[in-house]
């Protein structure tokens, strides 16, 4: 039983409202979800489908000047489009790309990139927050 409903029943017990008025009040409370529940539900829906990748970088200068700040917001739709673009690359070209990446020390297999995997990754990004804090530098990466 939530607090609002209990308060209405207490008012009814104290005779401050009639039974009919208490019934109207409880009906009105049942129609409208409580603010924390609404906010929680919104957060839950938003968390399940993040739309942007946010990157914050703040670097403090040793000379005492104002810090350098970088703020980047990348739509995840653009990342999805990039993965789809990779799926359109012919297989022969993908092999050449993989070879070039390997030579440069990047162990990524372009042939394994699939849009479905990215969608699943994006959903889990909602729970991911990366905070790196060093002496003069702060980096924060998260999805929203």
């Amino acid at each position: 039983m939530n607090d609002n409903r209990l308060h209405v029943l207490q008012m009814l017990a104290a005779g401050q409202v009639s039974a009919e008025e208490a019934d109207h009040l409880i009906a009105a409370l049942d129609k409208q979800p409580t603010a924390p529940a609404t906010a929680a539900r919104t957060a839950e829906v938003t968390a399940g489908n993040p739309r942007y990748l946010r990157i914050f970088v703040e670097e403090h200068e040793t000379s005492g000047d104002a810090p350098t700040k970088v703020n980047i917001r990348v739509p995840l739709q653009l990342l999805r489009a990039g993965v789809r673009l990779a799926s359109l690359i012919p297989n022969g070209a993908k092999d050449q790309i993989n070879e070039a990446l390997r030579k440069n020390g990047v162990p990524i297999d372009v042939t394994q990139l699939k849009p479905e995997d990215l969608d699943e990754l994006v959903v889990h990004l909602a729970d991911l927050t990366i905070d790196v804090e060093e002496k003069d530098t702060k980096v924060r990466i998260f999805a929203e």
Partner: peptide, 9 residues
């Protein structure tokens, strides 16, 4: 929705 910002001294 892309947003890119750099703020330095």
């Amino acid at each position: 929705g892309m947003h890119f910002e750099v703020d330095s001294p």
